[in-house]
Design a protein around this nucleic acid. Sequence first.
DNA 1: GTCTATATACGGATAGAC
DNA 2: GTCTATCCGTATATAGAC
Lengths: 188, 188
Amino acid sequence: MGTKADLNRQHIIDTADNLFYRQGFDHTSFSDIADAAGIARGNFYYYFKTKDDLLAAVLLSRNKAIKDMLDGWDKQMPDPRQRLNRYVQILTNCQHEIKEFGCPMGSLCTELAKLRHALQFNANDMFEIFRSWLREQFSLLGRRDDADQLALHLIARSQGIALVANTYQDAAFLEREVKELNRWIAQL
Amino acid sequence: MGTKADLNRQHIIDTADNLFYRQGFDHTSFSDIADAAGIARGNFYYYFKTKDDLLAAVLLSRNKAIKDMLDGWDKQMPDPRQRLNRYVQILTNCQHEIKEFGCPMGSLCTELAKLRHALQFNANDMFEIFRSWLREQFSLLGRRDDADQLALHLIARSQGIALVANTYQDAAFLEREVKELNRWIAQL
DNA sequence: GTCTATATACGGATAGAC
DNA sequence: GTCTATCCGTATATAGAC
């Protein structure tokens, strides 16, 4: 439904999503979100009962965005190898954000693990969507036996690159490692 | 100096270090540290003026521990390949902590980046100590031209493994990837 | 649906007795 | 050096007028 309330709700979710990414979940206050979204603090609770409710909504919103993106890739690209390279290309396309704030998925999962947050494992769904999609591509390449291991391997490689690029704020390192991953995909 | 005050100071540092690792820096309060260390909140400020001072002391303490460890390895093992494998073995030895809390260096750097903390780049020193030591080992293996790139590559691989092992709380994945890294070192 | 005002808890940090 | 008591800011969350 495209009612005004629904649009406001999604606007809050998008604003919170962005701030959670840039500042961390715990470190982002309702005031931060309210200010950035242009609404009053009090009105906030009309849409979300607690901060955890808001986090849950952000996670669902992210999951949908990831699924939509992968569906689009599937329609545009029939070749699994091309799809794998498109996955790796995220690192290049988002290199400025990654340099500043790391990976939105990895940094959030890391934080929720430390907080021992109730939604810690809900956040894994983001990775799971990528993982099953990657598994499918490796299967199509004939690697049915170790498709899942290859999927997790590629995710871990990407996460390591994002973490180091963020820590060192080094985009050149990121570019080098992306080329390395492209070579790895080519020789599978 | 081994005075009582110095011992207390180091005791606070060690307690804070452990809590920062398990709960995160921002999420750990003075009350948490005081309770865990068995001292009163007020007495805390006799040793450290601010929370940031305490973090700085924790970082220095970590740096010293890393240097001492690497010096020990250098004395025990003359072969650079053996040393590289010993580095990777940290993942296996610490798999339970990594599964629960991730890598102490990577998760702290990730958090400080989000907080835009003044000591964000001080925390990188931990990685820098490993990086220069790894660079030395790759140089000894005859890879003088790309020694630094190999060092960063290995650090990124390790970080990705720790992050995914923590996110999925999956020790089997960690073990598989460690074997992969051992193969990579063997065929350098 | 949106706002202001406020309850309540907890954070870092300080003062000062002992 | 160690403790208790406390200030002050900010956080989540709620109440209730409009």
